[in-house]
Nucleic acid binder design. Sequence first.
DNA 1: AAGTGGTCTAGACCACCAT
DNA 2: TGGTGGTCTAGACCACTTA
Lengths: 240, 240
Amino acid sequence: MNSLDGGPLYKGVQRVLMEQLASGALKPGQLIPSERQLATEFNVSIGTLRKAIDDLVEQRILIRQQGKGTFVATHDRERLLFYFFHVVPQKGLKSYPFVESVFFQKSVASDDVANRLGIAVGTPTFHVRNKLSLDGAPVLIDDIHLDQARWPGLTPVQFKERPNTIYNLYQDAFGITVVRTEERLRAEVVDPEHAKLLKLRAGMPVLTIRRTAFDMRNQRVELRISTVNTEKHEYFAELL
Amino acid sequence: MNSLDGGPLYKGVQRVLMEQLASGALKPGQLIPSERQLATEFNVSIGTLRKAIDDLVEQRILIRQQGKGTFVATHDRERLLFYFFHVVPQKGLKSYPFVESVFFQKSVASDDVANRLGIAVGTPTFHVRNKLSLDGAPVLIDDIHLDQARWPGLTPVQFKERPNTIYNLYQDAFGITVVRTEERLRAEVVDPEHAKLLKLRAGMPVLTIRRTAFDMRNQRVELRISTVNTEKHEYFAELL
DNA sequence: AAGTGGTCTAGACCACCAT
DNA sequence: TGGTGGTCTAGACCACTTA
């Protein structure tokens, strides 16, 4: 009776749960009803209900904790470092970056930015630039591009005085959760502006990462172009 | 009775299956017994048996086909292109690379190679260099390093006249299946030898990918250093 | 002790594939 | 038609957390 059907039963349950998550009816950090409760609510067996949740847990949208319950995932520092930050030292252990704001300005979408965000060229955007340091030295420049229409009233203060990660800010202030990203990497000659910030000589190679982030409804919500000095660091990925 | 226990029952079943796969008792391409059969053999319920297989299917070690059965995965061209080849055109569709052999020689492990393969410096190795072209132009140089002890009797002929992928050769000729890789990427100035092969000017930036491949027993079996011209192509990764 | 997720059972029925 | 994997049920019991 709970509306959505068509395919398998557990997929229907999954869609309903996903919609509640995407709409904000279930908020990040919140404890969701127990499996037994949900099973009776949806009028399915506990096995089917668990199967519906399994996928969401695998996508790290929900987090199961034995004895406590199932929670809606949040974007904490740890999650960022583990799943969304792929620059590591060539030697030594991964660590949290130290972030400094370079600027926050209004802009309009260039050809490249428009294409990657799926908006029209010339659409008003925010352009945020941050400098990230690892082990005391600048290693990475982030150029973040956002559609103004999707982030009404976003201010530099929010960006600069945030205690947590940027994805956490998106989640807290706008109810938008990044669940998936696509990254495209190239080797390029460093741009003069970036060279200065990274304290790199002109003409040196840098790694550029163009990352498109998607929310729970699979909409593009952010384009981030990272420029990385890979003299002492590198990009790491584990692939199946 | 089937030996291995300790944790959950389905993990035990999984370990036994995994051992049969790693030892070659179950070979790539082969149809494994049906779930009902395995369930009675292991003396577990069908649900538990399925749960044991679920993980292996997710790791793409087994492939389920409704109505037909469950098969041991093979390294065909499609799998390679989809899961182990991440260089795509900046514009247009992904395509199969055209591979040419540059050389096949015996060598000894350098510092870097030894570290990444987990062997001692100076250990005898094979060093294979291939040139890969996309859309008619050379884009990528692969430098493959293998521990001679792990690949006894490997010949250039096998490498050059192989109809399929290199991972397929490993599987057919040595019974070694690559199931997981780690990749580390940097931007570097192109090396003169590589520049010539890629028809790149000296001093241009290239993307280097250091990939370590692991088999089913989680042993390091191959180091592949790819040097990529990213003027018209790029490295693509989708991340959760 | 009560509530949660994690494991396991012993089936039934469906969808798909080969013959 | 018979065999396969895919879905679903209605429980039971275990491991863990909190009070």
